[in-house]
Amino acid sequence: PKNIIWAVAHGHQAAVTIDRLLSGEDVRERPAPGVTLVSQKMGIHEWTYDNDISNDARYKVPWAPPEQTLNSIATEVELGFDPATAWKETQRCLNCDVQTVFERDKCIECDACVDICPMDCITFTGNGEEAELRTRLTAPALNGAQDLYVSDLLRTGRVMVKDEDVCLHCGLCAERCPTGAWDMRKFLLEVTQAGPACRDRTVRRAAA
């Protein structure tokens, strides 16, 4: 696993496999996770989260002097931030749990969101194959590992394309949109865990 978060996720998947195997179910069938999207809008220009963007670079955590840390294995190397620096570091958060949601039917293709986006990550253009489409964006999407957010066809036959790789989740597109086609919604992923919830519905009803 890449890190402890991936390790925990893999552990959940292993537990689901064991549970389904012991229950006589197909271990290749994986229950879909639960997904919740809740709008964060409080007013025309207000959100329930802090959407201000900080341009500060990552703050370096101070270390204890080597003469102290090398003398005892029990000595903490990282001293942690003082309250003021900790606050500045939290302001660098890009609110990755808040997603930009686009509703095609509300869009009038005024391009106001394109004009205000500080990262040029929104483009209205003709549809096409992904590799070619990436080269026609306002800012070329160079990270092929990150999927593009592409809408269905709009009234003019164009599509809205958004490069999630550079989005700051600032919400300016949603604030500027005159029809509410854009919204900022908090994303909650509920991973299926081992137990009755990971088994087939018919089996759960029979067990009940």
Score class of each variant (00 low, 15 high):
99 Q>H: 15
99 Q>P: 02
100 T>P: 15
102 F>V: 02
102 F>G: 03
102 F>P: 07
105 D>G: 11
105 D>T: 13
106 K>Y: 04
108 I>W: 09
109 E>D: 10
111 D>Q: 13
113 C>K: 05
114 V>Y: 15
115 D>T: 14
116 I>M: 04
116 I>W: 01
116 I>D: 00
116 I>L: 02
117 C>Y: 11
117 C>K: 00
117 C>N: 03
118 P>N: 03
118 P>T: 06
118 P>C: 01
119 M>C: 08
119 M>G: 02
120 D>K: 10
120 D>M: 06
124 F>L: 00
124 F>W: 06
126 G>Y: 10
126 G>P: 05
127 N>I: 07
127 N>C: 07
129 E>V: 12
129 E>C: 03
129 E>P: 10
129 E>R: 13
130 E>I: 04
130 E>F: 07
131 A>P: 05
132 E>P: 09
133 L>M: 09
134 R>L: 00
136 R>Y: 02
137 L>F: 11
138 T>K: 15
139 A>F: 12
140 P>D: 07
142 L>F: 12
142 L>W: 09
143 N>G: 04
145 A>N: 09
145 A>F: 09
145 A>S: 08
146 Q>M: 07
147 D>H: 10
149 Y>H: 12
150 V>Q: 00
150 V>E: 01
151 S>F: 13
153 L>G: 05
153 L>S: 08
153 L>M: 08
154 L>K: 09
154 L>P: 10
155 R>V: 10
155 R>P: 09
157 G>F: 14
157 G>H: 10
157 G>P: 06
158 R>Y: 15
158 R>L: 08
158 R>G: 06
159 V>M: 10
160 M>P: 13
160 M>H: 10
162 K>W: 04
163 D>R: 07
164 E>R: 13
165 D>C: 02
165 D>Y: 14
167 C>L: 06
167 C>M: 05
167 C>H: 03
168 L>T: 11
168 L>A: 02
169 H>R: 10
169 H>S: 04
169 H>V: 10
172 L>V: 13
172 L>S: 02
173 C>D: 01
173 C>R: 08
173 C>T: 09
173 C>F: 09
173 C>Q: 02
173 C>W: 13
174 A>V: 08
174 A>K: 03
176 R>T: 15
176 R>M: 15
178 P>E: 00
178 P>C: 04
179 T>F: 09
180 G>M: 02
182 W>E: 07
182 W>C: 00
182 W>L: 14
182 W>Q: 02
183 D>A: 08
183 D>E: 08
183 D>K: 06
184 M>S: 03
185 R>K: 14
185 R>I: 04
186 K>M: 02
186 K>Q: 11
187 F>T: 01
187 F>C: 02
188 L>P: 01
188 L>T: 12
190 E>F: 14
191 V>E: 14
194 A>L: 03
195 G>N: 07
196 P>D: 14
199 R>K: 14
201 R>V: 14
201 R>Y: 06
202 T>K: 15
203 V>A: 15
203 V>M: 08
204 R>E: 09
204 R>I: 14
